[in-house]
Amino acid sequence: MKNRWITFFTGIISVRITGKGLERYINTLIKNGLLIWSVRRNGIQSLTFKMKLNDLSKLRELSRGSGIKIEFIKKEGLPFLFKRLLMNSGFLVGAISFLVIITILSNMIWGIQIKGAEPATEYKINKELDKMGVKVGKLQFFVDNVESIQRQLTNNIEEITWVGVELQGTTYHLQVVEKNEPEKPNYLSPQHLVAKKKAVIVDMFVEEGQAVVDIYDRVEPGQLLVSGVIGKEGQNVQVPAKGEIWGETWYKTSVEIPIKTTFQVYNGNEKRKHSLKLGNVKIPLWGFGKIEYKEFETETNEKQIKFLNWTLPISLVSDTHREKESETRIYSNEEAIDVAKKMARLDIKNNLPEDAKIIGENILHQAVDNDKVTVSIHFQIVENIAGGQPIIQGESE
């Protein structure tokens, strides 16, 4: 019989018949369209064969008054398998429930460990994590990824300089570096303080050493400001000169601003799609249809599913498609010059120490050419110009 495996889905019955005239009875069944196979003789008055479950009613009808005894000895195929599963459904449901519960527990957050933080900072971190939904008992699928948690903690808690976040199994490990760490004492060897750049001195505070310049003096790079050699002649002592020498310095910077600029912005429209990823195959779960946006950017967040200590090749994938639009910004000449000034100030501040101050500025040149505004600005800055220079052995003032 060809393609006999197809009958597995409809059901197969193994039948034993006993009585007289068995061959004639078999021929009667075949003539009436019953499909039978694997016919075997088990004795003078006994035969076995297999037939389709769908032909059972026809078999019973043809057996009436034939004097043949019919016995069903085996049942095979999907209908009987399904029936057996229903009869043992308690075990099946229990096994499936067990696997589901273990999988859920393997993907929950069971611990949060924070190292390197003071108690007050640790309390703030725990509070911030709670706002983000990172808490014991929460499923990892509904929590932001590690990079996002790290970024939010760094931005929202002023007391920390850096925080490393790592997920190991079901526990989040956080390594914290705080800003207000106690400063280690700085032991200096004997030194002078010299000028780091050309300047006019406007203020000075000498903590240790002998000042050799005064306010309003003009100094050149490398010029001695505070000597580390103190005492009377013949009784000189070398010390690490310390202090702050504030001088007025000068900087020149040029900034070029296009009058017309085209850039991409998000307009607030977004569409999310959720899918189950099996290996390299994605099965959509939620959010069907095409993305109708002309221009968009896609952010993908993938959560691996774990079972005990194993990471399964299964993951939940969330794709967020955000629509973008092209915006064109056109400055007037006055607006472009104003923006150029602000950018120049920002550029100067980024290249100066935090305690430096801008005390004056003067536009040297401004021009509009080829739809661009070019501005050159001269800045007056007050900054600490003192730098250490080791004293050579045997040197005296």
Rank of each mutant, 00 (worst) to 15 (best):
Y187C: 06
I109V: 14
V368T: 11
M1P: 06
Q223I: 10
K131L: 14
F142N: 13
Y172N: 07
F80Q: 05
H173V: 08
K52P: 03
P313Y: 08
E302C: 09
L316A: 12
L22W: 10
N301W: 10
T261Y: 03
K75S: 09
K50M: 14
E166I: 03
T249N: 07
I359D: 01
P240C: 08
T374C: 00
V39H: 04
W246Q: 13
I73P: 04
L153K: 03
Q45F: 09
E244C: 01
E158R: 11
N370A: 05
L99M: 06
S63G: 12
V200F: 13
F8P: 09
I391G: 05
P182C: 09
G231W: 07
L225Y: 05
I385V: 13
G388N: 13
H173A: 09
K124E: 13
S46K: 08
L29E: 04
N155V: 06
N351P: 03
L29C: 06
L78Q: 00
D347P: 00
V237S: 12
L174Y: 05
L59P: 02
I96W: 05
I13F: 04
K342M: 12
V212R: 09
F141M: 13
K271A: 08
Y293F: 15
F263K: 09
S66Q: 15
K242F: 02
K69V: 13
L312R: 06
N186G: 09
G43H: 12
E233Y: 11
K324W: 06
R40T: 10
G394C: 07
Q223M: 12
N384M: 02
L99S: 00
V239M: 02
T28H: 04
K277V: 15
I73H: 03
E208M: 15
K179V: 15
V212F: 01
G360N: 04
D338A: 15
N236G: 08
T28C: 11
G247L: 06
I230A: 04
N186C: 09
I104Q: 02
K282L: 15
I358V: 11
R272H: 14
H378Y: 14
I125P: 08
I337A: 11
L35S: 11
D338V: 10
N267I: 04
E256N: 08
V163F: 00
T121W: 04
Y123C: 00
I392Q: 10
I157R: 06
N180M: 13
T10P: 01
K20P: 04
K31W: 01
K31N: 11
V237M: 14
D355V: 06
F9I: 12
A241R: 01
E397A: 11
I96M: 04
Q238W: 13
I358N: 01
P119N: 08
D347I: 01
V212C: 03
L174F: 05
L62K: 03
N350W: 11
K294V: 14
E178L: 06
E118W: 00
N351A: 07
A199Q: 05
L188F: 14
F80G: 03
I291P: 12
P79D: 05
L53S: 14
G228E: 02
Y123V: 00
S376Y: 00
N126P: 02
I104R: 04
L167H: 03
S46L: 06
W310P: 01
V100H: 01
E128G: 03
R151T: 12
G137A: 07
I283F: 15
R24T: 07
